[in-house]
């Protein structure tokens, strides 16, 4: 493995560690989303708060997790396509 590849893998490892360490430390609130916590904070500070507008379409939690996965898949899919094209193009140009 070249030095450059090793550094790339170490970066990946660091990112995984940054996400995994909190999981081992645990959470009193079950790792709720910060967006939701902020919304709850607004509701707590303003009794009787009702959002004045609601989404047209609100997927069930199951569907939402699927759609989040879809979002990541579309992005990752395109990135993979890009790197495939770029790498191949560079190889062919070199020959």
């Amino acid at each position: 493995m070249s030095r450059s590849t090793l550094i790339n893998w170490l970066i990946v490892l660091a990112v995984v560690a940054l996400a995994a360490v909190p999981l081992f430390l645990g959470s009193a609130t079950g790792f709720g989303g910060a967006d939701g916590i902020a919304a709850a904070q607004i509701e707590a500070a303003n009794p009787g708060f009702e959002p004045w507008f609601t989404p047209f379409f609100e997927p069930s939690p199951e569907t939402a997790s699927g759609l989040f996965a879809l979002q990541a898949a579309i992005g990752a899919g395109f990135l993979g396509y890009f790197f495939g094209v770029a790498r191949t193009r560079r190889r062919l140009n070199r020959d």
């Binding site: 430390l25 609130t29 709720g32 979002q71 990541a72 579309i74 990752a76 395109f78 890009f82």
Partner: peptide
């Protein structure tokens, strides 16, 4: 053009990933 698409795709992936943080919440 393709690289521009990749930059958009990067934002697409990253903003879909909710990652736990040391504060006990995710973002």
């Amino acid at each position: 053009k393709l690289l521009l698409g990749a930059a958009g795709a990067f934002s697409f992936v990253l903003s879909a990933l909710k990652i736990p943080s040391v504060t006990g919440s995710s973002s």
